[in-house]
């Protein structure tokens, strides 16, 4: 009982630290690939501290509440994802709840941005929702392949069924959905070539154009948690989780480095090019994988 309470408190903090570490690592690796030095790894923490000391503007009540809703959704989401043996809220609906709580995050930012009456925000939000529709198609097919193969809707059961190096990525019905998920990982994290939502040079950072001060700090924290959640979900479903948090963290690092190498060298797609790509090759791979999974039974 006390262990559970400690897990519930420690999980989001650990997720926040790891997310922030990944964001700092991202800037350092991108800089080194560009042949320059780059900021220190603790730079996102410095950014968040600076942002909390700035006095920003507010456009209304929903402007505040939307950001709070988005961050509350990501913190609640972290509690449902198994993290190397720690899973505070396991028996409350499984993967379906995770998939649906992931809806709260863009919805909160969309509602808050709608009240900041700026056309750049509206364009950014519409691009964000269109990109989400783009990557959700192969993502859902891949997750359904996992759920059908292991015949369960609970993420903890999926992790337990892959114990002892029987990872899903290396079993022949599920390798195609795994590859499809790897292909859409930059889209889910908002990295290039799918960075079309923020697009600083086109639409002045889209939904974040009116955020300053503490709003931007909360959005940075939420971005850190979102990075953690997405990569942790992939490691749980396809790489077999881990028995303790340290190995889980190592697996997350490997996946993150792959995404970061792609981010450092690619330019940006337009939104219809991005959606067309996502509905073509990853969807085809995940679809074929789902058919294989059905036939394997």
């Amino acid at each position: 009982m006390w262990v559970k309470a400690v897990e519930i408190i420690v999980s989001p903090i650990l997720a926040f630290v790891i997310g922030l570490f990944f964001m700092g690592l991202a800037r350092k690796i991108t800089a080194r690939i560009h042949w320059r030095y780059g900021p220190p790894i603790t730079q996102p923490l410095i950014d968040v501290i600076k942002l909390f000391t700035q006095r920003s503007v507010s456009h209304g009540l929903l402007f505040d509440m939307g950001v709070i809703l988005s961050l509350a959704g990501s913190i609640a989401l972290v509690l449902f994802i198994p993290f190397g043996g720690i899973c505070p809220l396991e028996s409350s609906g499984g993967l379906l709840v995770i998939l649906y709580l992931m809806l709260l995050i863009p919805l909160g930012l969309a509602l808050s941005g709608g009240e900041g009456a700026n056309p750049n925000i509206s364009i950014g939000i519409s691009r964000k929702l269109m990109l989400s529709l783009g990557y959700e198609v192969p993502f859902l097919l891949a997750v359904l392949a996992i759920m059908t193969h292991y015949h369960t809707i609970s993420a903890v059961d999926v992790v337990r069924a892959q114990e002892g190096f029987r990872w899903a990525l290396f079993s022949w019905p599920l390798v195609l959905p795994g590859l499809a998920y790897l292909m859409i990982l930059p889209a889910m994290l908002g990295l290039r070539p799918f960075e079309v939502v923020q697009a600083p040079q086109e639409i002045a950072s889209g939904p974040m154009v009116e955020y300053g001060g503490k709003y931007l700090a909360l959005v940075q924290i939420e971005h850190a948690l979102a990075v953690f959640v997405t990569i942790a979900l992939f490691v749980d479903l396809f790489l077999g989780g881990a028995s303790n948090p340290f190995f889980f963290f190592l697996k997350m690092c490997v996946i993150f480095l792959l995404g970061m190498f792609v981010n450092a060298v690619f330019p940006r797609f337009r939104i219809e090019q991005a959606v067309r790509f996502l509905w073509r090759w990853p969807t085809a791979l995940a679809f074929v994988g789902l058919v294989f999974t059905l036939l394997a039974r």
Binding site: H59, I68, A72, K214
Partner: peptide, 22 residues
């Protein structure tokens, strides 16, 4: 979970500087 997370985030939000309504 969502309620407690919301309350904690709201407290962090209040700890920042009060924004200027525009």
């Amino acid at each position: 979970a969502v309620l407690v997370a919301g309350v904690i985030v709201w407290l962090i939000f209040r700890a920042g500087m009060k924004p200027v309504p525009v």
